[in-house]
C-alpha cells in the first residue's frame, strides 16, 4: 500500500468581493493523495480548480483548513522553507507554458535545479530530460523559436528536473490543439509514471480524466469523487 503524501483537511478559500461580501470558492475540502497516484480534478471553468491546485502547491494560502505534506502542515512554514519545499518537492505545469523568454530551452529546464543547488550536473539532467521530451535538437532555442506543443513539453521537463514528489498540472494542454494536446498528455503521463511521480492534474477534458488513477469533480466549491 502506497503511503499518503499530501492531505487536505477541511480546506476553505474565500475572497473578499466587496464590503462585507465573501465569495467562497472552496468549501470544507478534504482529500488524501497517495505516493505515485495520478489524481484528476475536473470541473467547469471558475469552479476553483486552479485555486485548489495553487493552495496544494503552496502558492496560495487557504482561508481555513490545512494542507498536510509529509505529515506536516505546509502553511506553518515561513517563505524560506515553503520556497525550498516548492523547489525540491513540487513541480508545476501551467496552462500557459510560462517559460522565461531570456533563457534557452535547456536553461529553462535547468533553472529549478540551479535554484536548488549550483552544480555542473544540472545541465546533464537537463539534457537527459530534453531527450525524454524529444526536443534535444531544440536545446539552444529560445521560447519564441518553439511551437506551443514544444513549449509545453519544455515546461513539463522543467517541472521534473528536481525529481519532485508531486507535480501539479493546471490544464497543461488547455492552450493546445487536439492533436498536440493528446500528444503532450500521453507524453506527460508516460514520463511521470516512469519517474513514479505523484500528479495532481486539473483538466476539463473527460478523456484525459478517464486515464487518471482517481478523479474528483469540483462542484460548487465541494470535491466529489467520480
Amino acid at each position: 500500500m502506497n503511503e499518503k503524501i499530501i492531505e487536505l483537511r477541511n480546506l476553505h478559500k474565500s475572497y473578499e468581493i466587496g464590503k462585507n461580501k465573501q465569495l467562497e470558492v472552496l468549501k470544507n475540502i478534504t482529500l488524501e493523495v497517495k505516493q505515485g497516484e495520478v489524481v484528476g480534478i475536473v470541473g467547469v471553468s471558475g469552479s476553483g480548480k486552479s485555486t485548489l491546485l495553487h493552495i496544494m502547491g503552496s502558492l496560495d494560502h487557504p482561508t481555513a483548513g490545512q494542507v498536510i505534506y509529509k505529515n506536516e502542515d505546509l502553511y506553518q512554514y515561513n517563505d524560506e522553507v515553503l520556497s525550498n519545499i516548492r523547489n525540491s518537492n513540487f513541480g508545476f505545469v501551467f496552462q500557459f507554458h510560462y517559460l522565461i523568454n531570456e533563457l534557452t530551452a535547456l536553461e529553462n529546464i535547468v533553472l529549478p535545479a540551479m535554484i536548488l543547488k549550483n552544480s555542473p550536473k544540472n545541465y546533464e539532467k537537463g539534457r537527459t530530460l530534453l531527450k525524454e521530451v524529444g526536443l534535444y535538437d531544440r536545446i539552444d532555442h529560445y521560447p519564441n523559436e518553439l511551437s506551443g506543443g514544444e513549449l509545453q513539453r519544455i515546461a513539463i521537463a522543467r517541472a521534473l528536473v528536481n525529481a519532485p514528489n508531486i507535480v501539479f498540472a493546471d490544464e497543461p494542454t488547455g492552450e493546445l490543439d487536439n492533436e498536440n494536446s493528446e500528444k503532450v498528455f500521453e507524453m506527460f503521463l508516460d514520463i511521470v509514471k516512469k519517474h513514479g511521480t505523484t500528479v495532481i492534474f486539473v483538466t476539463h477534458n473527460k478523456e484525459f480524466a478517464e486515464k487518471m488513477d482517481i478523479t474528483y469533480r469540483l462542484h460548487y466549491g465541494k470535491l466529489e469523487g467520480i
Binding site: 517563505d79 520556497s83 516548492r86 525540491s88 529549478p112 535554484i115
Partner: peptide, 16 residues
C-alpha cells in the same frame, strides 16, 4: 511580473 510569479513557483524565495 509574470517571470517573478514563475520564479516563485519554481521555489525562488522573496529574498532571491
Amino acid at each position: 511580473k509574470k517571470e517573478i510569479g514563475i520564479l516563485r513557483s519554481l521555489g525562488v524565495t522573496q529574498k532571491g
